[in-house]
Design a protein around this nucleic acid. Structure first.
Lengths: 361, 361
DNA sequence: TTGAAAGCGCTACCAA
DNA sequence: TTGGTAGCGCTTTCAA
């Protein structure tokens, strides 16, 4: 059915080996022959058989990506960026969604390992690093994305979550908030990092988290977080010392938070300022445009892709590399309590970005 | 390095063929032998080599998916659904994003064909059906998603776009709009179908589209459509007969439209009602919650996946199958001008869906 | 510069 | 019920 090296060899009265060498740009081929072969390849629209090639070389020119939820814009952007980067180098990308289910994630990883992907990229939904030992046994290089495990020394690419927490919290402090609460995520590295940053920023301003001002969205229910954010906020608002600023684990949570605040008859940001994380699309179009820490998922994807390509080629295992992408604070109405003009003692005014938002690195 | 059939055969004093048969549940194997082999396979964590298998069978147990933009929730949802469905049957999914670029899409398709995927799924960014002839030459079954080509008889799974137009427009009519405009998309099947539905719904109500009441977002610029929607709406509002209802090609366009309306000092829906298409997440949290026609992308993905699996197995080419998924109208504030209670002559009240929205099939 | 031989890990076919 | 043989399409090695 499909055209094979053998067919071309036969047509041209050459051997299969010669054709194979032309295909791979082997140096010791006569200029004449090379041209004839290339011409015939084009005529027949020859496509090398990846399976046959892989069988010998052991390389599949294939990369695997497992994310918790492809529907989440953060992971979708990462997936897109990786796909487009590796494509340029002739790699194809298997993408699969674990649906935040550790067991499903394990199956996916096993499947991709069985397929002998050259590299595996994982934004894990695991609670423990246990399952990565398996990958190490197989000697297939892998990269963790977004979420890491302290007990595991592996390649990692993700945002600097501590910086996320610092950025959001110190912004709220600058905006005059004095009772800043945090709605934290589950027990994974991202949530822990953001919480740490939140605490550090408060400490740096000689402030502290009031009792009951750190609440969790919990792990059950809709992982999109809107409901979790809503309920967590109700708790915060019922607190003796009602917060005047809330840093939310992510944007969906922040949406729930904003709704709860508005439902309670309070104003955003005058009564309570809100900052999210993720800078999801359409933040500009919300009832109150949402301030958010941008995680620059495009860059995460690109950096991950280039590391993956390096790992795919260097058969010698290099020592694990950790890449932390710096986040950016995107200020919108939900947290803007101070006029944009500069008080005498304040830092210089931030230049507006081209789409009219204020950006701070 | 990796465990091979040969290793197991050697360990157990059997032949490679026997092990291979156990692996594939071949009937003529003794119960004793089968158990011994399976046990040893488990012990060694044997993983069959896909490349070797493909080389002989011609099947790769691999499916390819090309979408215009993985970041768009519509395509992300489809990709996720397909990935999860085919996974259950042991298939892995190559996903790539063409970035709405026909040339890039062609490259991606070529790449996936070279990899001998068993089926190819494409939500195309092409203007012409030309490039699909190539796929047909290779005899690899393929399915078009979302966008189809009239000159091409192929498998298709997507929403019924004419129904989308009818649903949105007749909803606006029911809400009392009398000057209904349409912001249409580019010259692809989805936009054409929605436009047709819009015209049909108007005609069915003895209405017609006023001059200048169908405008296009154009093809250039940001394909996300917010800017396009904004500018198209400015044109509409400047029209002698300012519309009192606008059906937008999709939700991003509708966001731009809503902003333009609010910027002009008009009210939504009292002055102008707006309906989008796509029912993107967070529609509930917008400044004015957006009514939208839901395309049920999850179902599109599932249906496409099951068709793909059938095509992957039936080596006999069946005649192309077209699956049209019915859309649903999701009514929110942006188009709700009539009280929810039933006027005497109106159709019976719609039951609220579980999340409090009004759903009509 | 070219090519013959060997073999990657597996399955198909047929003989034992 | 089991297994020998022959290859799938390609690359690797080494000899011509």
């Amino acid at each position: 059915m499909a055209v094979r090296l053998k067919d071309i060899a036969h047509d041209l009265g050459l051997s299969v080996v010669t054709i194979s060498k032309v295909l791979r740009d082997h140096p010791d081929i006569g200029e004449q022959t090379r041209k004839r072969v290339l011409k015939r390849m084009k005529e027949l629209n020859y496509q090398p058989n990846f399976a046959a090639r892989s069988l010998i070389t052991g390389q599949t020119w294939t990369i695997g990506l497992v994310v918790p939820d492809l529907l989440h814009p953060f992971f979708a952007q990462i997936a897109k960026a990786i796909s487009m980067e590796v494509r340029k180098k002739g790699y194809s990308l298997f993408i699969s969604s674990s649906d935040e289910d550790p067991a499903l994630e394990q199956e996916e990883i096993a499947q991709l390992l069985a397929r002998r992907v050259d590299v595996l990229l994982i934004a894990s939904a695991q609670w423990a690093a246990e399952s990565f030992r398996r990958i190490e046994e197989q000697k297939i290089p892998y990269i963790l994305l977004d979420r890491q495990f302290s007990e595991l020394e592996s390649n990692f690419v993700g945002v600097d979550d501590r910086a996320v927490g610092v950025l959001a919290t110190s912004h709220l402090i600058e905006q005059g908030c004095r009772r800043i609460a945090h709605i934290r995520g589950p027990e994974i590295s991202t949530a822990i990092g953001r919480l740490t940053g939140y605490r550090q920023a408060l400490a740096a301003a000689q402030m502290t988290s009031l009792p009951g001002h750190v609440v969790s969205i919990g792990t059950s229910g809709d992982h999109r977080g809107e409901r979790g954010g809503y309920e967590a906020t109700l708790k915060l608002l019922a607190n003796k010392s009602c917060p005047d600023g809330i840093f939310c684990f992510n944007d969906p949570v922040a949406l729930g938070t904003m709704r709860a605040i508005l439902d309670a008859g309070l104003r955003i940001p005058e009564d309570v300022a809100v900052v999210g994380c993720g800078n999801l699309s359409y933040s500009d179009f919300l009832r109150v445009p949402l301030s958010s820490v941008d995680q620059d998922s495009m860059t995460i994807g690109k950096v991950a892709a280039s590391l993956a390509l390096r790992l795919a080629h260097n058969k010698t295992p290099r020592r694990p590399k950790s890449d932390l992408i710096p986040p950016r604070m995107i200020v919108r109405a939900s947290s803007l309590r101070r006029p944009a003009t500069v008080p005498a003692e304040a830092p210089p005014q931030l230049p507006p970005s081209r789409d009219g938002r204020t950006v701070r690195r």
